[in-house]
Design a protein around this nucleic acid. Structure first.
Lengths: 207, 207
DNA sequence: CATATACGGAACTGATGAGTTCCGGATACA
DNA sequence: TGTATCCGGAACTCATCAGTTCCGTATATG
């Protein structure tokens, strides 16, 4: 969005505006957002954390709402490559292989950002779709690939409801972290795969 | 909490303070909270909606934070009676019987209130536990009874992880409404019971 | 080396909302 | 009927924060 390619549309005299710090400002915004929520976040906090001046922030984004929108949208970039997902040969293997500590950390931050903006989402369709594109869709896409593979292998029924299955993992993780305030650790995730996701996909896991 | 039994602890001269309007104020607070979120809510909005004066609100609650805490805690009251739950003889029957239109409406409002305060929850342990007691625990208790019955009947395995099973319904509903912004209708709930909850409980539902 | 521009930072403005105070009117009680 | 008290409502104070302006400095370009 705003952080790339804004080189035109301004007086071309002298040096171009330095956009190298934009990612740091957006990242600072996400940090503050996840810690304080939308209303708790001030532009001063963001600027200070990014070691920038408040005016610098406003030179790039015309309002707090736009900054937040852009920051949320930018989380979309550092995502999984759908063509390079683990392929272990079994659905369970693939799902377990997706559990990596850095991935858990990233997901927790994303969820905290989500928590910081949920109350806005109902009132701002733009923010809502940005949030879904950046926070919901990427993970759903990964799961879609994994489940489709399992269908292609004949591991799970061909008429399995992939869209529904995709949501189980994210829904359980979000609920546990945001509503229950309990840690989302490897143990929980494995347990969720074995006790909920696989049975729902039609795989028996009885001993 | 505050809305009941505050008859002592104030000068006993003349008439007692009129507490009959307290529930209306708390209810107005919940409405505004669900529509505008914690920060979007103003005391004036609450007072106006309850047809009360702002001063009247402050005569009863010393701050916005306390009013919200009390309002959230008060949602706990209008809840299910655990001794009078549907008993259809099957787990599926019981779960389906719990789906009633007013119950869906109430759950949606609760979730919107939750959305309005999630970002506070990480920073306020008091609000966090009030929210869990009022919004999470009641529904979990119901499910616990239903699943325990199914175990007692021998319908599902005795070693089923009830705590984990209890969360599936609430988690899927919360995710669908708050993250996806899609309607939680009867069709979705039934589908969720048949495709996720029952398989996770160890019941085969294949045709 | 000169200059134009964007930088960080600080000092502004204006709006908003928490919390307080005050008032005229209603009402329970004696 | 008198009176004490609480009511709804309006008018305040004060702090905070979005957004703007200004300034002295750093630096890329020529």
């Amino acid at each position: 969005m705003t952080q790339v390619d804004q080189t035109e549309a301004k007086p071309r005299l002298g040096r171009k505006r330095d956009h190298t710090r934009d990612p740091e400002i957006l990242d600072a915004a996400l940090d503050v957002l996840s810690e304080s929520g939308y209303d708790g976040m001030t532009i001063d906090m963001v600027a200070t954390r990014a070691k920038a001046g408040k005016a610098t922030v406003y030179r790039r984004w015309s309002s707090k709402a736009e900054l937040v929108l852009d920051a949320v949208a930018c989380m979309k970039s550092n995502e999984f490559d759908l063509d390079d997902l683990p392929d272990t040969g079994t659905l369970r293997g693939d799902l377990v292989a997706m559990i990596r500590t850095p991935s858990i950390r990233a997901a927790e931050r994303k969820l905290k950002v989500m928590a910081g903006i949920v109350s806005m989402i109902a009132r701002s369709p733009e923010l809502a779709s940005a949030a879904r594109a950046a926070l919901v869709e990427p993970r759903a896409s990964v799961n879609r690939v994994l489940f489709q593979r399992a269908i292609d292998r004949g591991e799970i029924p061909a008429d399995a409801d992939i869209e529904h299955l995709c949501m189980i993992g994210p829904a359980m993780v979000a609920y546990r972290l945001l509503m229950l305030g309990r840690p989302v650790d490897r143990e929980f995730l494995i347990s969720n795969i074995d006790k909920v996701i696989l049975p729902a996909a039609g795989i028996r896991t009885e001993p």
